[in-house]
Computed example of a mutant assay.
Amino acid sequence: MSDQEPLETKAPAPPSAPFRESSGEEEAFAAFYRSFLPTLVGFLIWQGAGASLAADLAQESMIKAWRGWSTIRSPRAWVRRVSSRELVRHYSRVEEDPVNPVPDGANANALISRPQELAEWENGQEILGLLESLPPRQRQVLAWSVDGYSPSEIAEELGIDPATVRANLMKARHSVASRMKARGEEE
């Protein structure tokens, strides 16, 4: 090759998708997705999200989980944490309510496929009404607690002090109990 001949260059290879060792990972994620998605949607609803928003945030969290599936050690806690943070971000971006809000049941939601699940969800609306007046942090720790996490586990997942979690749980439970008692006396 002489100094006058042009050097051959190759075009860079296009970026490839992350390498997956086996379809076992895909099957494991698919099973996790199918079994846990309804639970995740419910978890977000307990924190105050409407059904449509909860379904969207759950779906986005599952996409993020798939992208990092091989590195996630506790997928249930991981997607709860990610979706919970996304819900907080969503609320921080909202500046005002729409003039004519669209009711949650206006469009059929593919993530709530069985009508009996929807009926059960509707039966839980009374308790959601009680929870609606709680501050966001109290709703958040209560949702984690209802899903079976201890105060120390919740504190670790949310990056706050366990004493703060216990205090918020106590305040939330006391507030809900007081409201339930007041409703019972009114009827």
Rank of each mutant, 00 (worst) to 15 (best):
K10R: 11
G105C: 04
P151I: 00
P12A: 07
P18H: 04
Q4Y: 06
G148S: 03
A163D: 12
Y149A: 07
D104H: 11
R67K: 07
D3S: 14
E95C: 04
A54R: 00
S113F: 07
I112N: 05
Q116R: 12
E120L: 12
V41F: 01
V176Q: 10
L87A: 05
S83P: 09
T9F: 11
G48E: 02
A106F: 13
G68H: 13
V94T: 15
Y149D: 08
A65P: 07
A28Y: 05
P38V: 02
Q47N: 10
R73K: 15
S74T: 12
A110I: 11
V141M: 06
R173A: 12
W46D: 12
P151E: 01
L87S: 02
A106K: 11
R139A: 08
R166A: 09
L53W: 06
L169N: 01
E25Y: 09
A143W: 03
A108P: 05
S145R: 12
A30D: 05
L40T: 05
D104Y: 09
Q47R: 07
L134E: 08
K64S: 12
R76Y: 02
S113V: 11
E117A: 14
R139C: 08
V41Y: 00
Y149K: 00
E156I: 00
S23T: 08
D56Y: 04
S133C: 02
N107C: 14
R80E: 02
A11Y: 05
V82E: 00
N123R: 15
E157M: 10
M180V: 15
F43V: 04
S23R: 09
T39D: 12
L134A: 13
N107D: 14
E117Y: 09
A55W: 02
D161M: 07
A17S: 10
K181A: 10
A106Q: 14
K64H: 11
A172L: 13
P136V: 14
G68C: 02
V88G: 04
Q47G: 06
A54G: 07
K10I: 11
R34E: 15
L53T: 12
S150Y: 09
F43A: 01
S2F: 04
A163V: 11
V88P: 00
A110T: 08
R166W: 01
S52N: 15
R67Y: 03
L111M: 05
A51Y: 02
K171G: 03
F19Y: 12
V82Q: 08
S83E: 00
R93S: 14
K10A: 13
G124P: 03
R85Q: 14
E27C: 00
A143Q: 01
Y149T: 00
T71C: 06
E120C: 03
E122D: 13
P12F: 03
L169S: 03
N109C: 15
A106T: 14
R114L: 14
M170W: 04
P103M: 03
L87F: 10
W144Y: 15
F32A: 00
R137C: 05
S52T: 13
M62G: 01
A182E: 15
